[in-house]
Design a protein around this nucleic acid. Structure first.
Lengths: 191, 191
DNA sequence: GAACGATTGTCTAAATTTTAGACGATTTCA
DNA sequence: TGAAATCGTCTAAAATTTAGACAATCGTTC
């Protein structure tokens, strides 16, 4: 399980890395959230630990909420556990509303932190798989719709391509599978 | 939300019905679990309250476990909240392992019971929808596989049928959509 | 590297299918 | 009811598919 930690305080980053290091496969810490989109683009991370107050000039956490939404709008979004200053309940609640999976307050309890991250990952996995299946279903639906509107020749060409590909280009075999003459297959491929 | 209650004790059934009646749309109580498959076949119920000790001659709860598995193996299984005798922790744990969503011990706390049933239903809904989507995805996958293996003529016939159906049998229009001559469409339909 | 079977690309000529067009009969819809 | 669209059927030409044959090439096995 891979974790990504974002906090502008180097000491906090190190501390978090120490605590979580023993429990997770790999941990990456960064100080600048601008790197987030690039790092998460591949869906490599299972969870993100996001500090809501990383910009000391803006204490309302709006930056944190902004990045939270950016993360959660991604196709294969990781679990997000938010780190808020002690007592900042309103911000925490708002963050949960906007898709955060859990939050911990500074200073944190190490055991609780690990448990929350793990639990958030578990919870998020189901949502991810649902999303994956849904998007897949949507794709096949779209393909079906497209298929319905196809001309007979287009459909033929499509199917021929797929069968030829599945035969690794063996045209003799493909023709046999398609139930047509080899010569006919040549004719079709010429178009 | 519809609830099904199974308990061999008539007084218990009445009592449960009273407690839950105010919170759920409709409640059906039965004393004999043999009716379960028929009642659940349509997927009408959101939750089942199942007494593990309804057969007084067998106190090990094996009958309850049996019916729990029957219920949970159904395609659109409802949430199952189990009722166990006080202190029968081992049985409760075993039941949870086998797919039970929650359990209450006799005597029960009314508020807690309602909360557990509601929570179990919520939890189960997600699982149900996941299952539904998964089975749908499986279907479309199977259809795709079948499609891949089709002969060109079979594929043609399939597509022609679907287009003709979509044109409500208007062959002139269907032929135009398919990009073939009307006469050719007649030929194809003859086979 | 020789030998073998399978595949390829190309050709021919016959068989089959598709096509455009036409025709009166029937259906649809305003 | 009346015009437009569709149907079912036909013809003859055009296009496609088919089986079969051939030498060349490829991959495997010995």
């Amino acid at each position: 399980m891979r974790i990504l930690i974002i906090d502008d305080n180097k000491a906090v980053r190190l501390s978090l890395k120490m605590v979580l290091g023993s429990e997770f496969d790999s941990i990456l810490t960064i100080g600048d959230p601008k790197l987030l989109p690039a790092l998460l683009a591949n869906g490599d991370f299972d969870a993100v630990l996001l500090d809501m107050n990383f910009d000391t000039s803006r204490l309302d956490g709006s930056d944190g909420l902004f990045w939270l939404e950016r993360i959660k709008s991604m196709p294969q979004a990781p679990a997000v556990v938010l780190i808020t200053a002690f007592g900042d309940i309103q911000l925490a609640v708002e963050a949960m509303k906007r898709g955060g999976d859990d939050f911990v307050t500074k200073p944190w309890d190490n055991i609780e932190l690990i448990a929350k991250v793990k639990s958030a990952i578990r919870k998020n996995r189901l949502a991810r798989s649902v999303q994956a299946v849904l998007s897949q279903a949507k794709d096949t639906k779209a393909r079906q719709d497209k298929l319905d509107a196809m001309t007979l020749d287009e459909l033929k060409a499509d199917h021929i391509n797929s069968v030829v590909a599945r035969c690794n280009g063996n045209l003799t075999q493909a023709a046999k599978l398609l139930g047509i003459n080899r010569q006919t297959l040549y004719n079709q491929l010429k178009k």
